[in-house]
Amino acid sequence: MAPTVADRRTLLSGVAATLATASLAGCLSGEDEGDEDGESDPIVEEAEAIEGDTDPDLWQDVAEIHLEGYVGGWVGVEPAHIDRVENPTLVLFEGRPYEISWENRDNMKHNLAIWNADDERVEEHATDVVDDEGGTETLAFTPTAEMSIYICEHQPGIQRGDLEVVDEEGGSEGDT
């Protein structure tokens, strides 16, 4: 039995509607496309940027870092050069004591852990899990060269930021 004209029209209108919807969705999402400068936009609404300042001179006097935890990522609060930056790179000087404090901002499970380049936790450097909005935790530690990222172990693919560990002479670990 041959298809009728009505069957062809139904098929073609369905295909056209699907293509139009897909095209419109691609134009509106923009999250993965980047802006006119080719930079991606933050996923977390409270963030304004995805890159902070990693000049070691700005980090020279920093001993306390404050973040907010969301399912979409960490958002910097303090120091000022990471304020509203999503998953900011944290510049730390090897051998100095630091505290990273964070606040749960979305009522979901979060913790903060420090991992190495092999995606393994460094020693026991992790906070307890907080699952209530407004709950806070602080991780006190002294950075070592093996530390490479800070992460929420409940959202490891999207809630992670780099650690740039600098030796006391001012060079990044691993620089030649």
Score class of each variant (00 low, 15 high):
residue 2 A to W: 13
residue 7 D to I: 11
residue 7 D to H: 03
residue 9 R to V: 13
residue 10 T to D: 11
residue 10 T to W: 10
residue 11 L to C: 07
residue 11 L to Y: 14
residue 15 V to N: 05
residue 16 A to F: 09
residue 17 A to F: 05
residue 18 T to A: 15
residue 18 T to D: 12
residue 20 A to W: 04
residue 20 A to D: 08
residue 20 A to N: 04
residue 22 A to C: 05
residue 24 L to F: 10
residue 24 L to H: 14
residue 25 A to Y: 06
residue 29 S to M: 03
residue 32 D to A: 11
residue 35 D to K: 00
residue 35 D to T: 00
residue 40 S to T: 12
residue 40 S to P: 05
residue 42 P to T: 05
residue 45 E to D: 15
residue 47 A to N: 08
residue 48 E to S: 11
residue 49 A to T: 02
residue 50 I to K: 03
residue 50 I to P: 02
residue 51 E to A: 09
residue 52 G to A: 02
residue 53 D to T: 06
residue 56 P to S: 02
residue 56 P to T: 06
residue 57 D to V: 13
residue 57 D to I: 08
residue 59 W to M: 07
residue 60 Q to M: 14
residue 61 D to H: 10
residue 64 E to A: 10
residue 64 E to H: 08
residue 64 E to K: 07
residue 66 H to A: 09
residue 66 H to I: 04
residue 67 L to R: 00
residue 69 G to Y: 00
residue 72 G to R: 03
residue 75 V to H: 02
residue 75 V to A: 06
residue 79 P to L: 05
residue 83 D to P: 00
residue 85 V to P: 01
residue 86 E to A: 11
residue 86 E to S: 11
residue 88 P to I: 04
residue 89 T to M: 09
residue 90 L to N: 02
residue 91 V to D: 04
residue 92 L to W: 12
residue 92 L to G: 03
residue 93 F to A: 09
residue 94 E to C: 04
residue 96 R to S: 15
residue 96 R to M: 10
residue 97 P to F: 08
residue 97 P to W: 04
residue 97 P to V: 04
residue 97 P to C: 09
residue 98 Y to H: 04
residue 98 Y to L: 02
residue 99 E to P: 00
residue 99 E to K: 12
residue 102 W to I: 02
residue 102 W to M: 12
residue 103 E to H: 00
residue 103 E to I: 08
residue 106 D to R: 10
residue 108 M to S: 15
residue 110 H to N: 09
residue 112 L to Y: 08
residue 113 A to D: 07
residue 116 N to Y: 07
residue 116 N to Q: 09
residue 116 N to S: 13
residue 117 A to R: 06
residue 117 A to Y: 09
residue 121 R to V: 13
residue 122 V to E: 00
residue 123 E to K: 15
residue 123 E to A: 14
residue 124 E to Y: 01
residue 125 H to W: 13
residue 127 T to V: 11
residue 129 V to C: 07
residue 130 V to L: 08
residue 131 D to L: 08
residue 132 D to E: 12
residue 133 E to D: 05
residue 136 T to K: 11
residue 137 E to I: 03
residue 138 T to C: 07
residue 139 L to G: 10
residue 140 A to L: 06
residue 142 T to Q: 10
residue 142 T to A: 14
residue 145 A to S: 12
residue 146 E to P: 11
residue 147 M to H: 15
residue 151 I to W: 07
residue 152 C to T: 02
residue 152 C to F: 05
residue 155 Q to F: 15
residue 156 P to W: 01
residue 157 G to C: 07
residue 157 G to L: 12
residue 160 R to K: 15
residue 162 D to F: 06
residue 163 L to K: 01
residue 163 L to T: 03
residue 166 V to Y: 10
residue 167 D to L: 08
residue 167 D to W: 09
residue 168 E to V: 04
residue 169 E to L: 06
residue 170 G to C: 09
residue 170 G to S: 08
residue 171 G to L: 11
residue 171 G to E: 14
residue 172 S to A: 13
residue 174 G to T: 06
residue 175 D to H: 06
